[in-house]
Simulated scan of single mutants.
Amino acid sequence: MKIISIINQKGGVGKTTTVINLAAGLSQLNKKVLVIDLDPQGNATTGLGLSNTDDSELTIYGVLNGSKSILDCIKKTKFSNLDLITSNVDLSGLEVETAGDEKRAFILKEKLADFSKENQQNYDYILIDCPPSLSLLTVMALVSSVTLLVPLQTEFFALEGLTQLMKTIERVKSNLNPKLGIQGILLTMYDKRNKLSSEVEKEAREYFKDKVYTTVIPRNVRLSEAPSHGVPVLIYDKTCPGSKSYFSFTDEFLNKEFQIESVA
């Protein structure tokens, strides 16, 4: 059971879109996937067809405040092999509520460890959709994960923001989670008509080398339409450029996984 956080402290970079469509792509290849929506906005929740206005405690907030277990909160989506722990706005109060807890950064990790012990080999992947900030919730995800997937939009301030994120990752690695690594960097919102997109791509590939996936995700209207229908774009419109890119990315993601396992 591999735990991967999809992270970037900048909003609007295609993070939730990547979570939803990677999860859908993996599930279609018969991988069992659990998505944890760790963003109080609950976009991954609605993007997979569930409600983010549900005020019950059967959400990730219920898990992190200690009232529920992970098993209690897993909900089925309408897609086979793909389950979800939903989020809602209650999650935004967690930082204040846990202010006195010295070990609060480890709450999610401990809950996932308990779940893993009780439910051996239940999921191939747990994908955590992080909030667009370097907050307590993001640190919880970093502490819990084996690797990180970073969507990087091919725009002007993208690499500047990434430098800040790398510093945070290094701090978490040295103090809280020495095994943390970067799975890969996915270039998103790519516009081949725009010279800036190719310049950002060139810089990212020069700096991060083979950590940058070959697949790039283009700007695509269908990608932004799909969440309002509560389905991944891979199901909403299989033939659009966004879908083709995410299908290709899923294959590349699994091939890299296979290479990492072979080396190990």
Rank of each mutant, 00 (worst) to 15 (best):
R205L: 04
A204F: 06
V212Q: 06
K209D: 10
G242C: 06
F249Q: 12
E201M: 09
F249T: 08
E201G: 04
K192I: 11
S243G: 03
S198A: 13
G230W: 00
E206P: 09
S224I: 07
S228G: 12
K238L: 13
V216H: 14
K244W: 05
L223E: 06
K211W: 08
K209P: 11
K209C: 08
F208E: 10
S197R: 06
P227K: 00
S228R: 05
I235H: 09
L223F: 08
S245A: 15
K195A: 09
T239Y: 11
F208P: 02
K192Q: 13
N194F: 04
P227C: 02
D237T: 00
P227M: 01
C240M: 07
K211P: 04
D191V: 04
P227L: 00
L234P: 01
S243I: 06
G242H: 02
D191R: 05
K202H: 12
K244G: 11
R193H: 12
R193W: 10
T214K: 14
D191S: 07
S228D: 09
P227G: 03
K209A: 07
R205Q: 11
R205W: 02
V212C: 08
V200R: 09
V200D: 05
F208K: 09
E225F: 00
E203S: 15
L196C: 08
F208S: 09
E201D: 13
G242W: 02
E201F: 05
S243Q: 05
Y207R: 15
D237K: 04
